[in-house]
Measured scan of single mutants.
Amino acid sequence: KTSLNPNDLGPLPPGWEERIHLDGRTFYIDHNSKITQWEDPRLQNPAITGP
């Protein structure tokens, strides 16, 4: 199984920011909706992941 390299996905969507949590995990901030999440928003785009 090959793992996706986030660098291959291009930039984050407008308004998003990638940060490192105190425990070392990466999380994502959506400044548009004022939410945070652990999942990379680029992986949730149907145009990238397919049907």
Rank of each mutant, 00 (worst) to 15 (best):
K1V: 00
K1M: 05
K1E: 04
K1C: 01
K1R: 10
K1S: 08
T2A: 08
T2D: 15
T2N: 15
T2G: 06
T2F: 15
T2L: 09
T2Y: 13
T2I: 14
T2C: 09
S3H: 08
S3K: 07
S3D: 11
S3A: 04
S3E: 05
L4M: 12
L4T: 06
L4P: 06
L4G: 10
L4A: 08
L4S: 11
L4E: 10
N5M: 14
N5D: 04
N5K: 07
N5P: 03
N5F: 10
P6G: 14
P6D: 15
P6M: 15
P6H: 07
P6L: 12
P6C: 14
P6K: 15
P6E: 14
P6F: 10
N7Y: 05
N7M: 13
N7G: 13
N7L: 08
N7K: 12
N7S: 12
D8L: 06
D8F: 06
D8C: 14
D8R: 13
D8E: 13
L9V: 05
L9S: 07
G10S: 07
G10F: 01
G10A: 11
G10C: 06
G10I: 03
P11T: 10
P11E: 12
P11C: 09
P11I: 06
L12D: 01
L12N: 03
L12Y: 01
L12Q: 01
L12P: 02
L12E: 03
L12A: 02
P13V: 00
P13C: 01
P13S: 02
P13G: 03
P13H: 00
P13Q: 02
P13K: 03
P13A: 03
P14E: 14
P14R: 11
P14A: 14
P14H: 09
P14M: 07
P14T: 10
G15K: 04
G15A: 05
G15D: 04
G15C: 04
G15E: 04
G15V: 02
G15T: 03
G15Y: 03
W16K: 06
W16C: 03
W16R: 04
W16M: 04
W16Y: 04
W16Q: 05
W16G: 08
W16I: 02
E17M: 01
E17V: 04
E17N: 02
E17G: 02
E17Q: 05
E18R: 09
E18A: 11
E18C: 07
E18M: 04
E18F: 01
E18I: 01
E18H: 02
R19V: 09
R19G: 09
R19C: 10
R19P: 00
R19S: 10
R19W: 05
R19D: 04
R19L: 05
I20A: 12
I20F: 07
I20C: 15
I20V: 15
I20H: 10
I20S: 14
I20Y: 09
H21K: 09
H21D: 15
H21N: 07
H21A: 15
H21T: 15
H21E: 12
H21I: 04
L22F: 07
L22Q: 15
L22V: 15
L22N: 07
L22T: 15
D23C: 10
D23F: 00
D23Q: 07
D23H: 02
D23R: 02
D23T: 13
G24R: 03
G24F: 00
G24Y: 01
G24K: 03
G24L: 00
G24D: 01
R25E: 08
R25A: 06
R25Q: 08
R25I: 01
R25W: 01
R25D: 06
R25H: 05
R25S: 12
T26K: 14
T26M: 10
T26G: 03
T26Q: 06
T26A: 12
T26V: 11
T26D: 02
T26I: 10
F27W: 05
F27Y: 15
F27P: 05
F27I: 09
F27V: 08
F27L: 12
F27G: 08
Y28H: 02
Y28F: 05
Y28G: 04
Y28W: 13
Y28D: 04
I29S: 06
I29E: 11
I29H: 01
D30S: 06
D30A: 03
D30C: 09
D30E: 07
D30T: 01
H31I: 13
H31G: 07
H31N: 15
H31R: 09
H31M: 13
H31D: 02
H31A: 09
N32F: 05
N32T: 13
N32Q: 09
N32I: 14
S33Q: 08
S33W: 01
S33V: 05
S33D: 07
S33H: 15
S33M: 06
S33I: 04
S33F: 03
S33A: 12
K34N: 12
K34S: 08
K34A: 09
K34R: 10
K34M: 11
I35H: 14
I35G: 06
I35C: 13
I35S: 11
I35Y: 06
T36P: 02
T36R: 06
T36S: 13
T36I: 04
T36F: 07
T36E: 10
T36L: 03
Q37A: 04
Q37Y: 06
Q37M: 07
Q37L: 01
W38S: 12
W38I: 09
W38D: 13
W38V: 10
W38P: 08
W38G: 07
W38Q: 11
E39H: 10
E39F: 04
E39R: 08
E39I: 07
E39Y: 04
E39N: 13
E39K: 08
E39P: 04
E39Q: 05
E39G: 09
D40C: 02
D40T: 00
D40Y: 03
P41I: 00
P41R: 01
P41L: 01
P41F: 00
P41C: 02
P41W: 00
P41V: 01
P41Q: 00
R42T: 01
R42F: 00
R42D: 00
R42I: 00
R42M: 01
R42N: 02
L43I: 07
L43Q: 10
L43M: 09
L43V: 11
L43P: 11
L43A: 13
L43W: 06
L43T: 12
L43Y: 08
Q44T: 11
Q44F: 08
Q44I: 13
Q44L: 10
Q44V: 10
Q44M: 12
Q44P: 10
Q44K: 15
N45Y: 09
N45D: 08
N45R: 13
N45P: 11
N45S: 13
N45C: 11
P46D: 13
P46Q: 07
P46Y: 06
P46F: 07
P46C: 11
P46E: 05
A47T: 12
A47D: 15
A47P: 14
A47G: 14
A47L: 11
I48Q: 15
I48M: 09
I48G: 14
T49H: 11
T49L: 11
T49I: 08
T49K: 07
T49N: 06
G50T: 15
G50H: 03
G50L: 15
P51C: 07
P51E: 11
P51A: 15
P51R: 05
P51S: 05
